[in-house]
Design a protein around this nucleic acid. Structure first.
Lengths: 205, 205
DNA sequence: TCGCCTTTGTGAAATATGTCCATAACTATA
DNA sequence: TATAGTTATGGACATATTTCACAAAGGCGA
């Protein structure tokens, strides 16, 4: 119905719905149902309906959901109906992979700067980006007003860099360093650590 | 008390504890408490105690936990007290970054083969690995008996490759392709999609 | 228009997860 | 040995999340 307090776990599923709906739209479909969407993303139809109904009545009985309408609504809810500037810290292998990744732009994000503290790397190019000096990171982030960062520095440096990012005004960090970050309540962190993800599956093997 | 049926959500936290404990051990600490560990990983002490106590009485009242003992126990529970062979499918930028990543070996994993379907790439090297032909993927995986795979192919190819992996006996997939995979119940998938992770945070900005 | 089919939205019930707290166990100190 | 200070354990309690099941609404064909 309305947006009192939406649990984070629901927010976490919306990007998955969004991704699946985008694929359906791309393949020319116009409508879908909670049943069909659920089969695509591996989530029960009831849960999808409940999740969506938190934000309004977006479906039609007997018909299901208009894909384009639902896409627009979800993008609005997640605030990816705009382009977010993101900075990338760390120009190692992972930094290169992210800098070259073509999948950000049509999903609401744009890398605006890449920083590294290795003076050898500063000034060199990654694709269209010139690597900037980490010494100027805080000032530049403040100037640009960037709120999101991707962190691909070595683990021992990560907390220190995160502190600086937060000081510079960053409020959301996608952390590739294999370490838990200590951040204030008003800062969000998402963790990507392949070894951790693999370890989460071995239990079941 | 014991291992009747451990919720997946608990299994998911164990690798995080493991990672933090490993860091503590590396810095020379011998014991820790649920309180201290919780501060490191951002989880309440009560929850950590409850999680750990699912598997046995690993702590000592008044003292806390022996870091080395708890490390051993967690590794045993997660079955990362051994080395798992992993295949990497897709030799793009992300595949390169993973192939060069040094963080797998001391956390229980070893990349044993890299496959790509681009004949131009087959035979070329990534570090110490020679890229192999995807046509022979199924057979080779079967021969090696590999149970885990990392998937870094383009989204349109991912489901098809996943089907082949499963046919070859793979039971756990770390999926970097931005698409939900349809897999049988006895196969585990973990998703890594930077755009999805970023979209999970914009809601709060 | 009238049935019949489909599908949503949603309270209620069922599960699952997280927190609290009383108790017991251990350390350290005197 | 006694006492004070820590800390794990585990059961009770509180919250959160998921599933169920059904009324209501829309589509479609006769």
């Amino acid at each position: 119905m309305n947006a009192e307090k939406i649990p984070d776990i629901i927010i976490g599923r919306l990007p998955v719905y969004l991704r699946a709906l985008q694929r359906m739209a791309d393949s020319g479909l116009k409508t879908t149902s909670s049943q069909e969407l659920g089969e695509h993303v591996g989530i029960s139809a009831a849960q999808i309906r409940k999740d969506i109904s938190q934000f309004g009545e977006f479906g039609k009985q007997g018909t299901g959901y208009s894909i384009q309408f639902l896409l627009d609504k979800l993008r609005g809810i997640l605030k990816v109906d705009r382009i977010w500037d993101v900075v990338l810290i760390g120009a190692g292998d992972m930094g290169h992979a992210l800098a070259n990744y073509q999948g950000f732009t049509n999903r609401g994000f744009r890398i605006v700067s890449i920083f590294d503290n290795d003076k050898e790397k500063v000034g060199t190019m990654i694709g269209e980006y010139k690597i900037e000096d980490a010494d100027q990171m805080v000032e530049k982030i403040k100037t640009m007003g960037v709120k999101m960062a991707m962190l691909t520095v070595p683990a021992p440096a990560a907390q220190n860099v995160a502190d600086k990012l937060i000081q510079a005004g960053v409020r959301a960090i996608l952390n590739y360093a294999p370490i838990s970050l200590n951040v204030p309540n008003n800062v969000k962190v998402q963790y990507i650590d392949p070894a951790t993800h693999l370890q989460r599956m071995t239990y079941y093997l």
